[in-house]
Design a protein around this nucleic acid. Structure first.
Lengths: 170, 170
DNA sequence: ATAGTCATGTAATGAGTTACATGATTGC
DNA sequence: GCAATCATGTAACTCATTACATGACTAT
């Protein structure tokens, strides 16, 4: 049920339409909590039904601007402070590792080599957007940079692991 | 569609019933690909329908032992070598970080402090099962240890990050 | 005019969770 | 006899993905 809170979190910064939120998602939350357009719209509908957001304005082309309500803010705060994060790590990359014994050692090494390379690419990418996001002093940017740094560290240790693991096979 | 391959991967080691697989899951794959009992049973049904596994024996209490077929092995190998892992990282722990600006600095620091502590607990836990899994020379154990080491590194960099991030707030 | 962007929605399907239901067999 | 474990399944629901459908406005 985290999409709901992702939406509330963004609307807490500023009011927005579904369309606006979609674009915001793509440049911020998408890396930690992907969502599709249809999910967003239906979630907004549900949030409005339960009174956590209001339609605060209607614009051209049927545009609806949503604003978070007091109840919505309370729910967001509750989620932030009282609800324990549930770390469900689902990784088909690691799942494959369990079964590398089905392949030849060369193939297994190739797989891990590929993962190391992917991690390097990921690192490059993160470094490249880093400069881009260096400015921005609003909350979302400030804390977004913490998240970005998590990503950097993750990619780095993934690279190290894959390189190490490749050498473990033989 | 990875649950399917998780099941195929386990059945490639040895034939087993749904019940057996469930227990195997809990001690091996559960950390990278959790699954519930009902998911497992229905997946086994679908796999049997599509001929990727066979019911090779029936035992007491309606027990059905499943065995992977040639087609199943081919599908597993195909998935291992030709299908790119899709890294969908969904983390409500990181999602919360984006919105820490909604809280007081003290609360935000407390959140990150809690995450650091959790990572330490996780590390301890991993170290404790490490000794336990040190033996075992079958493929699943050998490669399972690679996965375990990934978990160790992950927990470690998570701890470092959380400690760092805590100090970034102020 | 027409291409591009703004803007919202529905339908179908698959994946995952929780809870319930049922009963056989084994070991003490 | 009884508790524990073995063993399979169904139902209801939520969450997520993909594809489709529709149309208004804006800038050139």
């Amino acid at each position: 049920m985290s999409l709901r809170h992702a939406v509330l979190g963004l609307l807490a910064e500023r009011s927005a339409s579904g369309y606006d939120l979609m674009k915001l998602f793509d440049v911020s939350l998408a890396n930690v909590w992907p969502a599709t357009q249809s999910q967003l719209y239906s979630e907004l509908g549900k949030l409005a039904d339960t009174g956590l957001v209001d339609v605060s304005a209607e614009g051209p082309r049927g545009r609806k601007e949503y604003t978070i309500t007091e109840a919505g803010l309370a729910e967001l705060r509750h989620w932030l402070t009282d609800v324990q994060p549930t770390r469900v790590v689902r990784s088909d990359m690691l799942l494959r590792v369990f079964f590398l014994g089905r392949l030849s050692p060369e193939q297994a090494r190739a797989y891990l080599h590929g993962q190391a390379q992917l991690a390097r690419k990921q690192l490059e990418h993160i470094e490249s957007i880093r400069a881009f996001v260096e400015s921005g002093s609003d909350d979302l940017s400030v804390y977004g940079r913490l998240v970005l740094d998590y990503g950097r560290r993750l990619a780095e240790s993934q690279r190290e692991w894959a390189e190490w693991a490749e050498n473990q096979i033989g």
